[in-house]
Nucleic acid binder design. Structure first.
Lengths: 105, 105
DNA sequence: ACTTACGGTAAGTTATGACTAACAGCTTAC
DNA sequence: GTAAGCTGTTAGTCATAACTTACCGTAAGT
């Protein structure tokens, strides 16, 4: 049900995280991204395609350039999935400490 | 520099997500986890070691068994990293609908 | 028209890691 | 004591995907 989680697996790659963080400073074309990254331009293009299919970025043609920007949808799916464990994990964490103090509330 | 993000890359593996989700129902020993998973017990043990090093689970010896439970620390690091983009992404999303407005001064 | 800049696609190589099988250590039961 | 159960570790295999080089199409400039 919750599986695949394309957005999460997509951001697992360090290069894609670099691209994503770079886009957080504002929408940019592919070439500008590739210039400041340690990989070739085709690599960036491939990563952007993956990010797009995961709902993490959107693209828009502007003349001969293609502008990419962050899409909140992908981030939302990750957040929702994480929140599923948040309350449970905090409860388990509380239980771990209350073991010594069961008798004295 | 938030890079590496062990917790995020760790949860990118579908088998590890299965183990993690299983632990969300409560602390369990390794054997119980392996019984309901499509992989061997050593595989589960290896995955648990990775989850532990990422701060996503903690373990505690109980007789001859080892009980694993969810650790909120790993989840927290992911949440903090995501929040870094949350406001930015929503802003970009809003800009996409307000369309133009690059007004000349 | 040609030329240059920008970007996506194909093919091929390589490295990472997920998995199984076999072994070793430790704990409880007999 | 020995045996049986539970777990971690090692060695080795195999599949996935990240990357580069080369190529092709398109848009703007000369």
């Amino acid at each position: 049900m919750t599986n695949s989680l394309l957005a999460l697996t997509t951001l697992a790659d360090p290069t894609r995280r670099l691209i994503f963080q770079r886009l957080a400073t504002g929408p940019q074309p592919v070439g500008a991204l590739a210039r400041d990254l340690p990989v070739s331009r085709p690599a960036v293009s491939q990563h952007l395609a993956v990010l797009k299919s995961a709902g993490l970025v959107t693209d828009r043609a502007e003349g001969s350039r293609r502008i990419y920007r962050i899409d909140p949808h992908g981030l939302a799916t990750i957040r929702i999935w994480l929140d599923q464990f948040w309350s449970v994990s905090l409860q388990n964490y509380a239980d771990e400490f209350s073991q010594d103090e069961e008798a004295a509330p």
